[in-house]
Computed example of a mutant assay.
Amino acid sequence: MMIPSVLQGFLFQEPPSIIITAMSVVTFMFLSYLGISEITGNHLQYSKFWNVGSQKISAKLQNKLSSRTGMLILYTPAFLAGLASFAIYPDGGFRFFMVKLTLTVHFLKRVLEVLFVHKYSGGMVLDTAILVSGSYLMAAVGMIYIQHLTLGFPEPPIDLQYLGIILFIVGVSGNFYHHYLLANLRGKDEKGYKFPRGGLFDLVICPHYLFEILGFLGVSFISQTLFSFSVSLGVAVYLSGRSYVTRKWYISKFENFPQHVKALIPFVF
């Protein structure tokens, strides 16, 4: 695949491979499709949308999982893959180490949040849990494996890895902070949804998604492979769609929803 010259300064020269190119294209298109599907009403059924927008939901209820179990299925395989990568690929230099570390930390954080931070209502459909879990797993394995293939190839002329580390730290910290705020909206025995306050919730309804995008973008800056950028851009498209419908959901549930609160990006979207 010919990479435009404007991008060549930012990307590794990877071994020529139709498979790697196809993985990058398919990953971006698949994640983008999920984002567009959210906007058109075909939601992945978890969180507040776990039983919305499906004509076949009654048939799927027999495969309903608790939110905690479903979310553990979402993140645990990718975390274990990241952890295993340190044994499978023990060498490779600082950049490769940071790709493995940031992916492992990201999914470990999500597992720990599932166990100790989040409060739950609703549930998750098994189909959704398997689909999202597989997507995260393939993204993590793909980024690590393709990074391994770049070993020995020339470094990109423009080095983004240290900027990527900063972006990842900002992303993972901001994501955790806003998950913590969401968790503390509810009392011990409360199950319903409340309008979130604090942090960037005063400007956007899904700041946790914004920081998750920044975290993935940070990983792609560290990695600087075409596949990693495909993942981060695909995640951005998906979470943009998810945040858009989340804002619509809050508007439908709260009559006093402040119109200046955007979906994802303050003052813009």
Rank of each mutant, 00 (worst) to 15 (best):
K188Q: 12
V114R: 00
L210T: 02
A139K: 05
F168V: 00
F12M: 12
D91T: 14
L44Y: 11
P207L: 03
Q259W: 11
S47T: 14
G93K: 08
F267W: 10
F30Q: 13
S230N: 02
Y250K: 07
L151C: 08
K119R: 09
A183D: 06
T69A: 15
H43K: 06
T104Y: 03
I39H: 00
P4R: 10
V114A: 09
G164F: 01
G198L: 09
K248Q: 12
S32T: 13
A81P: 06
F49T: 03
L137Y: 00
Y136K: 00
G82V: 03
T225W: 02
S58E: 15
K56A: 15
F254S: 10
G234W: 03
I158Q: 12
W249L: 14
L61C: 13
Q161V: 05
P266Q: 04
Q161P: 02
G122P: 01
I88Y: 07
L11I: 00
D189G: 10
F153P: 11
I20H: 14
N42C: 15
V132I: 14
A129N: 09
D202E: 13
L137D: 02
H43D: 05
F267E: 05
P156Q: 06
L163R: 11
G123A: 01
Q224N: 08
V99N: 02
L131F: 09
W50K: 10
F116H: 09
Q259G: 12
R95Q: 05
A84N: 07
P90T: 06
S230K: 04
P196T: 07
F49R: 01
C206D: 07
G218Q: 04
F269G: 04
F201L: 12
Y193K: 04
F94K: 14
G241L: 05
V125Q: 15
L31M: 13
T21H: 14
P196M: 06
M143Y: 05
N42V: 15
E14R: 02
A236W: 13
L217G: 12
L185T: 07
M1S: 15
K248Y: 13
P4W: 07
K191F: 05
Y209K: 01
G192M: 13
I222N: 01
M1I: 14
I20P: 11
G199Q: 03
